[in-house]
Design a protein around this nucleic acid. Structure first.
Lengths: 331, 331
DNA sequence: TTGAAAGCGCTAACAT
DNA sequence: ATGTTAGCGCTTTCAA
């Protein structure tokens, strides 16, 4: 029933024109109070629901925002997504969430879905395999505001919203140094993604500047399984690490599995420091000490930037959000 | 640019009528090959993208499916969502994912968003707090197919797609009995949700039927924190359990945190069995033995059922999907 | 084989 | 304060 109530129907019942009904429902000042009331009442009674498609066809404003992300779950994005969702709800936008799953073809297809649904703007976090971002840039050319977040392309001329990757990595390194750790194993993610490219050098530089005698091993893991395998390997060596740094939750999971297997005590036998949005660190005992890379704050910032773009402030900008140390008991 | 290409524009350039262009693009048999080719080429060159809003306004078919779920991440739903997404992509549907976050108001607002965007159908998993499902049922009254999945309401006359909750719980119980466990602690989730109501009695019944001398403790945990606290409590008792059953991933996380804290060896000191979609059990060492409640298969089934509803097979049905034992090393 | 025309539901400029 | 009208982009019936 609510599906069929239209302005026309209301206007016929009330024997007034369609435009009067339209105006009454929008609380237009021209319309008399009496008419307004009649219309609003009837609309409520008939459960009138404006036809979003007609509105968009007419106004060219879908009030849908697209969100393209490698994966919805487990790691960083869930808090980001939740905060964007909340903002959308507050501001009467519909959020269209699309997972690309590390697959560039699906990513392209997701961009098409955004176009097809004529989204008002797009939030995008690129997959580790994304080299060619021309399909994304075309959105921006079509005047669809585009905001990259977290894993962003190495391209200057676009909107980006990132956490302070370098600063966070440095904080982690400084913490480890300050605790006088002597043999540090640090795991980073895919070398070709922006966050690794920012975190890794900052981490190394912090150690160099500290002028410490600590040994620093750097390795990479692209999945939790790989982090697990490699951790086992390192912890079975003669000169085994006293500290492991995990660039991401994914890595943390693998490292912790290996530590469980070897029955090491944290932090007595091995110290752990991670970069995380803070959900998984609480799943372990002792809770993991981490540098918070807040998806929540990042989401709010991205949304605010989107609103700015939509209201005309189009100059590409890169925004950075700070992070902070959250102490668990793992170091 | 692609934003502005319309049938009209193409028709003007080619000096033919709009309807001919429309037909040519749809490969309508009436149109000559020559015309078709010309049109298709030009459309490609101008990056023509059909206006979904105009189509929907005309045809009343949005090809958007809504998915309303308590939470996108961490636990069961991600595999379910991914498989639905894949089916949608294959079948040219857009999936609108909406999180309710255990909040009934947000859930209602999500239903409204579905209506507003005139979705073709809705998949819904209700929150633990949802008592009143009338807003959902109204969708079905408006002839929007509605398929509940996983956590479904206690209401006969609607479509449901569930895992074999009772059978899965029985499998877990049988496994524990067969391993001659003597002191079993079992954690269940919120008593007011359907899956608990199905799993709990089946679990208990399996023990009763087995006529074992084993002691069975039943308790409930609504969050991973609660599972953690309660596990600590039970494991510090004199007569401590030799086995813990976890009804969900959420509970498993809490239980495992307590086990880490107490430095118990799995399965020597304590055995674990869970119900899970299989992602988290692999995060622990030894990997957790679980009864698979496959979100993936459930998603495919739900989608297939949706397509059936859309093609007219509207009789409410409850579909159940089997589960199976996946051995880890935790019992 | 192609074109003309109506209409989906709505908004907004232009009457009155 | 209210009505008339045109048109957003598309599909589809009817006509040629």
């Amino acid at each position: 029933m609510s599906q069929n109530t239209t302005l026309k129907k209301i206007s016929q019942i009330l024997d007034i024109s369609i435009s009067t009904v339209s105006r009454a429902l929008k609380n237009h000042p021209d319309i008399s109070e009496r008419t307004k009331q009649k219309v609003i009442e009837l609309a409520a009674a008939l459960e009138y629901e404006p036809n979003a498609y007609a509105i968009n066809l007419r106004t060219n404003n879908s009030k849908i925002l697209g969100l393209i992300v490698p994966s919805i779950s487990y790691y960083f994005y869930d808090t980001f997504i939740s905060s964007i969702e909340e903002e959308c709800r507050k501001n009467n936008y519909t959020l269209l969430i699309l997972q690309s799953g590390d697959d560039t073809e699906t990513e392209i297809s997701n961009i098409k879905i955004c176009r097809h649904n004529r989204v008002t703007g797009v939030f995008a976090c690129i997959t580790p395999n994304t080299k060619d971002i021309s399909a994304f840039l075309k959105l921006a050319e079509s005047e669809i505001p585009l905001i990259f977040f977290d894993k962003v392309p190495p391209y200057e001329n676009c909107n980006k919203v990132c956490i302070a990757d370098a600063a966070a990595a440095k904080m982690a390194a400084d913490l480890i140094i300050q605790k006088h750790k002597k043999n540090v194993l640090s795991f980073f993610g895919n070398k070709s993604i922006s966050i690794t490219q920012k975190r890794l050098p900052a981490f190394i530089e912090a150690f160099e500047q500290a002028n410490t005698s600590a040994n620093l091993d750097i390795d990479f893991a692209l999945s939790f399984e790989e982090a697990y395998e490699k951790t086992l390997f390192y912890l079975n060596k003669k000169n085994k690490p006293d500290t492991i740094f995990c660039m991401s939750d994914e890595i943390l999971i693998g490292v912790m599995k290996a530590i469980q297997q070897l029955q090491l005590k944290v932090p007595e036998n091995i110290a752990i420091v991670a970069l995380s949005n803070g959900i998984m660190p609480k799943w372990y005992y002792p809770e993991i000490t981490y540098i918070e890379t807040s998806g929540d704050k990042l989401g709010r910032l991205a949304f605010a930037r989107m609103m700015e773009c939509l209201s005309g402030n189009i100059q590409p900008q890169e925004l950075i959000i700070g992070s902070m140390l959250v102490e668990g008991g793992s170091i």
